[in-house]
């Protein structure tokens, strides 16, 4: 399965594409896509002007980012694994 992710235009935060064509920061609300429908859905997202910057497909397995980019996408989802952001607490 695939899902579509991007960064939000106004603040850059990570967002995911929902089944009704909206964007959400919640991975749980993202629309899982079969591999054969993913490219078409991405093309539609890319063609829209809206709040999303640079939409792209990521692998999605059992409710989490999967595939070879699982760590990168996991960090995008949950935030930095270490560093001052975590020490101070994310806003």
């Amino acid at each position: 399965m695939k899902i579509i992710t991007a960064n939000r235009l106004t603040d850059g935060r990570v967002i995911y594409r929902t089944s009704d064509g909206q964007w959400t920061p919640s991975l749980a609300e993202a629309q899982p896509l079969d591999n054969d429908e993913a490219d078409n859905a991405l093309a539609i997202a890319e063609g829209e002007f809206g709040i999303a910057v640079g939409p792209y497909l990521i692998d999605y397995t059992e409710g989490e980012p999967g595939g070879q980019k699982w760590r990168r996408e996991g960090i995008r989802l949950a935030g930095p694994t270490a560093g001052t952001t975590r020490t101070l607490g994310a806003a």
Binding site: N7, D11, G12, R13, I75
Partner: peptide
């Protein structure tokens, strides 16, 4: 040109 990148989680 104004030093603004888009990174993983934010600008």
């Amino acid at each position: 040109m104004n030093g603004v990148y888009l990174q993983l989680h934010a600008y």
